[in-house]
Simulated assay, not measured.
Amino acid sequence: MNIPAVLGAAGIITLAALAQATTGFGFSLLAVPLLSLTAGPVDAVVGSSVLAVLLNAVAVTRDHTEVRWRTARTVLLAGVAGLPFGLLALILLPARVLTMLIAVCVLGGTVAIWRGLRIRAGRTAMATAGFLSGVLTTATGVNGPPMAAAFTAMGLPPRQFRATLAAVFVVVGPIGVAGFVLAGRFTTDSLIIAAAGLPAVAAGWWAGDRLFGRLTDPARFRTVVLCGLTAASVTTLLRAAFA
């Protein structure tokens, strides 16, 4: 990656971390499709996955008393089982197809969050959502929507929602990263993204945390973020389709 690409990646990650801190979602949904336009889909997935582990670790540390551990264990086991299937897709799919898959997953996840998609709560539903999230973790890096739908169906309060989601991903994420290493997908560019992203994540989280305290209309800002996610996914999809 050249210097402009590195600076662009840092800017994307800062924006994604800001969105995550302000709204509670959006890091992978925003970072992966935009990074795939500059660094390629595999490096985007691997590099952003490393940074997502850091964000989730911070969230769990701050709100560990709010984690629903019984629920987390159920979805965690299913999520770990899904990781190898997603890694297989990452290895076998051509770059163009993988880019389109990322864009479709981001667009679908954005619509699901926007429309407040719910699934029927229960152990089977939790396990299914966990497995699907595990597959998406290593295939596309966009793993939040299935779990968001499941936890919404359970009616978890916002703080428990965020903390339990982070508790699952803070375990699934490092296992996924280890899978990338074993599969030889941890390239120089993905390391550069992760290294450039560390200060960018800190800056984005700091700005987003302060912005959140000053928002007079959080719902309007959430709509702006969702519009941005839609635009990012559509742009990525069109670029992959007509490249």
Rank of each mutant, 00 (worst) to 15 (best):
4 P>E: 06
4 P>N: 02
15 L>D: 09
15 L>S: 15
21 A>P: 00
22 T>E: 14
24 G>L: 05
26 G>W: 07
28 S>K: 00
29 L>C: 01
32 V>E: 03
34 L>Y: 12
45 V>C: 01
48 S>H: 06
49 S>K: 09
55 L>G: 09
57 A>G: 10
59 A>L: 12
59 A>N: 11
63 D>L: 13
65 T>L: 12
67 V>E: 11
67 V>F: 12
68 R>Y: 02
69 W>N: 09
70 R>C: 02
71 T>R: 00
71 T>C: 06
86 G>V: 10
86 G>F: 04
86 G>P: 02
87 L>R: 00
89 A>S: 10
90 L>A: 12
94 P>A: 05
95 A>I: 00
96 R>H: 14
98 L>T: 06
98 L>F: 02
106 V>Y: 09
108 G>N: 07
109 G>Y: 15
110 T>M: 05
110 T>H: 11
113 I>H: 06
115 R>Q: 11
123 R>D: 13
124 T>F: 13
124 T>L: 13
126 M>S: 12
126 M>W: 05
127 A>W: 12
130 G>P: 04
131 F>M: 00
132 L>E: 02
133 S>M: 01
136 L>Y: 05
136 L>S: 04
136 L>C: 09
139 A>N: 08
141 G>E: 02
143 N>H: 06
143 N>S: 15
148 A>D: 06
148 A>L: 01
148 A>Q: 07
153 A>G: 15
154 M>G: 03
156 L>A: 13
159 R>L: 14
161 F>N: 04
162 R>E: 15
164 T>F: 00
166 A>Y: 07
171 V>I: 15
172 V>C: 07
173 G>D: 11
177 V>M: 10
179 G>L: 11
180 F>L: 10
180 F>Q: 08
185 R>W: 02
185 R>H: 11
187 T>Y: 00
187 T>K: 02
189 D>K: 07
191 L>Y: 06
191 L>T: 07
191 L>V: 07
194 A>H: 04
194 A>I: 04
196 A>M: 05
199 P>V: 03
199 P>L: 02
200 A>V: 06
203 A>S: 13
203 A>F: 09
205 W>E: 05
205 W>H: 12
209 D>C: 11
209 D>R: 14
213 G>E: 10
214 R>Q: 11
214 R>T: 09
215 L>N: 08
217 D>F: 10
220 R>G: 08
224 V>N: 00
225 V>N: 10
226 L>E: 06
239 R>V: 12
240 A>R: 03
241 A>W: 14
